[in-house]
Design a protein around this nucleic acid. Structure first.
Lengths: 348, 348
DNA sequence: AGCGATGCAGCAAGCGCTTTCTATCCCTGG
DNA sequence: CCAGGGATAGAAAGCGCTTGCTGCATCGCT
């Protein structure tokens, strides 16, 4: 029914071995023979059986990319960049690899299950993006899984994720702490003294690091933080809207709101507008990530640009072994403060 | 080195066949035996070899999702919904399937190559999202590929994509024409007579259908379209910005700009603002899709809401055989006009 | 008590490919 | 003119799993 290697071999009047070699191109085959084989492949419309080939060769051409939320451009941009380097069809790379992105939805269990699924497929490489969950058992489980993947020859790269100690995983980490600090220092520099902070989910490393940066800035400038000024939420717009309302309720005199990311910041802007406040005249707003839409907010969002595409591309190249991993297997990727219209001096 | 089924069998003191059956759970195995096997699996930390299993069973648990641009929330939202229904870990479905999204970048070749890759992996199902390219040879090539996939037992579903004649592919098509028409009629109803249109890439079905709807509305109201009023571009913000400037240059008296999608509309808004025009006082703007950020534009974007998540979920269920395909294999999904602040009556 | 059902486990034959090892063939140099 | 050697092609042994079929108890029934 389906065409097999043997069929091609028969038609080309060669042995299956020869066909395999032509297809894999890693063994000398006479030009004439190759031609004949290729012709047969074409005529029969032969498609290699991936599983069979993976089984026999003990390797597959699958590369997994794990993301927390595929509907979020933050991950979409990274995934896209990674994928373009992985090869996939039309990519820069030579061999045709199937770069697949897996959506964990931020759930630790799904993350683990996907890792197992990838392990099961004997993936050639795996790239994990985004912050990790700070749950000790889960962290250990992931680390164990990563070690197993590596043992099986799968290359593991973390992109925008803290290093995983005791594993050979290469880590490209975002400097969330530094970015958060710089951002808040910018606001303090403008004269703000009462700053609300809308943090992400408590258990995520990204959340913690950004918040730490924020607090470091406050501390460095002798501003004592009021516990009411911090609210935790999710990394989405809705959450930003609600959190801002809550913040305003707790302390209506805030002059700035720092958000966990740009989506949250947009929600914050909406909430501020809806409550009759002007940005930045009454309240300044700042985001994080600098996603494409941030510049379209009115006023445009002050934020920290993360080189998502660059980092993703680099992670992809490392995963493919086309770029040297950074010394020590860890590199920190810094963000860049983008000062735009949403931040200004507080009213005198 | 790696643990195999046989190792597990040995440890559990049963035959490999029994282990396989326990793992697949489709054959009666005594409870005690099953326990023993499961225990061995656990102790040895056994992970099934996907390729081997796929080879032997002649099916795999891979499901492919093709998207044009993974960094675009339009696709991200659909992919996310599809994936949640496909199962994947934690999904609604029972069996654990590896739902993978492949980024074609809008390139016909990559689309074809991914399809081949998926065929090579003997994917269980494939979902193609987004508009198709209107190139006859390519269309034929895709159709042929789809037929082959189907012949190999892969279920094929199109989501937000026109039907593929002569294939058994189930199609969930967006009513782009109807939505476009409704949108423009809304603007005409407000009193607009000179409307610019920023279309997407010329070769895409989505582009054509939306534009046709727009023109149908104009025609229905006896408005003769000026060729200068239509500009083609890409489906991104940048393109919207540039196209708007071009439109304004060609005819500074336009009172409304209809964009191919929301991102383009955002770019249009920016261009209008930068050229000193107010929205909607001087010029009304409308988008398409109603992506999450549209409501955050200032003023909020008038647009056509496409039920991306619902359609994706349905496509996913159909792909998994958990929902009856629509009669005739084709269903049209309608959009809903969302009138918001970016559209208003033109100045008298 | 005897016999067909029934339930559960094992045997063994592949699934389609890769790859090592071996067999040719033809060319070159002595 | 023949041995040696490089260049190709083929034979065959798996890779790790699934599954149809067989085997053998045990069970219920007459």
């Amino acid at each position: 029914m389906t065409v097999t290697l043997a069929d091609v071999a028969a038609r080309a009047q060669v042995s299956p071995a020869t066909v395999s070699r032509v297809l894999n191109g890693n063994y000398p085959v006479a030009a004439a023979t190759r031609e004949r084989v290729l012709k047969a492949v074409d005529e029969l419309d032969y498609v290699l059986n991936g599983p069979a080939s993976a089984l026999a060769a003990a390797t597959s051409d699958l590369v997994g990319i794990l993301v927390n939320d595929i509907a979020d451009p933050f991950f979409g941009i990274m995934a896209s960049a990674i994928q373009s380097e992985i090869g996939g069809p039309g990519g820069r790379a030579g061999g045709e690899r199937l770069a697949v992105v897996c959506n964990t939805g931020g759930s630790p269990e799904r993350e683990l299950t996907y890792l197992t699924l990838l392990q099961r497929q004997r993936a050639a490489a795996v790239v994990l993006t985004g912050g990790a969950v700070e749950d000790a058992p889960h962290k250990a489980a992931v680390a164990a899984k990563l070690r197993k993947l590596e043992a099986a020859g799968t290359r593991v790269v973390l992109c925008g994720r803290p290093p995983a100690p005791d594993t050979g995983a290469i880590a490209l980490t975002f400097d969330n702490r530094g970015g958060g600090r710089e951002l808040t220092e910018h606001l303090i520099g403008l004269g703000h003294r009462r700053l609300g902070y809308i943090a992400g989910p408590e258990e995520r490393t990204t959340t913690r690091h950004r918040l730490e940066g924020h607090r470091a800035a406050l501390a460095a400038h002798g501003i004592e933080e009021d516990p009411r000024w911090t609210v935790h939420g999710r990394y989405d717009r809705r959450s930003g809207y609600e959190a801002t309302l809550e913040l305003l309720r707790r302390d209506p005199t805030l002059t700035a709101v720092v958000a966990a990311n740009d989506s949250v910041a947009l929600g914050a802007c909406a909430a501020l507008r809806d409550s009759g406040r002007r940005i930045p005249d009454d309240v300044s707003v700042a985001g994080f990530d600098d996603l494409p839409f941030s510049i379209d907010a009115v006023p445009a969002l002050t934020t920290v640009r993360l080189p998502l595409a660059e980092a993703g591309a680099r992670a992809g190249r490392i995963a493919m072994g086309r770029e040297e991993p950074p010394p020590g297997g860890i590199a920190t990727v810094r963000g860049e403060l983008m000062v735009r219209g949403s931040s200004g001096a507080p009213r005198a």
